[in-house]
């Protein structure tokens, strides 16, 4: 009798273990999601995005004559907010969920960009990335280029702690590692998008003209990393056109 009970208990334990193992491996197969868990939805409450009302007409440009956002547009906006809050740049939804941004969605994203504190360099850059990917694929419209021009001509962000002021802590060759890129991140992402637009060869003549105008603005940037990147793209463009 005892042996039979032990056997039964063993069987139940085995079923439980196999069920647990199956769940575990299923979760591991969704690895990129696993990586987002530590900073995922739980963090939405503990570390909300810092939204600073900062109306910037040029950044939120293009609100004229656009259809009102539909529920699905707001849903994408909420999803974007969730991803930005999680601080997981490898969230696969970045590649999957934002591939066909409607004009209303793009307007919402531009507004979101303008609302974010300037110090939110990665969050701002991520929005530019999503809008820029669409720009590179479709050629964009006047509102898109107006937004990109505004991003490229923003005042330089002076320090990661406070874009309006120089760092109080001084500089050090080691601690400055990568900082220049992070400070100029939204602008560099905008330039990468323009580079992709030019490279893909599908841009219309009008898009190319606007892309060249954006590059001309960026070349004048007081930020060395931005000006250098713009010059490099211009050089590529000149070589391609044989001029």
């Amino acid at each position: 009798m005892i042996f039979r009970n032990v056997k039964r208990a063993g069987f139940v334990l085995a079923v439980l273990t196999v069920t647990l193992a199956s769940s575990f491996f299923w979760m591991r197969a969704r690895a990129p999601h696993v990586s987002s868990m530590a900073g995922g939805p739980k963090d939405d409450k503990s570390r909300p995005l810092e939204i600073v009302p900062e109306p910037q007409a040029s950044l939120a440009a293009g609100t004229h004559a656009l259809p009102s956002p539909r529920p699905e547009d707001f849903a994408k906006d909420r999803l974007l907010s969730e991803i930005l809050t999680a601080r997981n740049d490898n969230d696969p939804r970045l590649d999957r969920e934002f591939n066909a941004l409607t004009p209303a969605m793009r307007r919402l994203f531009r507004e979101r960009y303008a609302e974010l504190a300037s110090e939110k360099r990665n969050e701002r850059g991520t929005i530019v990335y999503l809008l820029g990917r669409q720009l590179a694929r479709t050629g964009g419209d006047a509102d898109d280029f107006q937004f990109f021009d505004a991003v490229l001509t923003e005042s330089p962000c002076l320090s990661m702690a406070d874009c309006a002021h120089h760092s109080a802590g001084g500089a050090d060759s080691h601690s400055e590692m990568g900082t220049e890129i992070s400070l100029a991140y939204p602008q560099l992402v905008a330039l990468v998008s323009i580079e992709h637009l030019i490279e893909n060869g599908r841009a219309s003549a009008s898009s190319l003209i606007q892309a060249r105008q954006a590059l001309a603005l960026a070349v004048k940037s007081p930020v060395q990393a931005v000006a250098n990147k713009a010059r490099a793209i211009q050089a590529t463009l000149s070589r391609a056109s044989g001029s």
Binding site: R47, R87, N88, D89, N90, E119, K120, R121, N122, E123, G125, M160, A161, G178, I181, S182, Y185
Partner: peptide, 12 residues
């Protein structure tokens, strides 16, 4: 504290 205070991309 800058590890999370500063908004660097994850790869940085």
């Amino acid at each position: 504290e800058n590890f999370i205070k500063f908004s660097h991309p994850q790869i940085a």
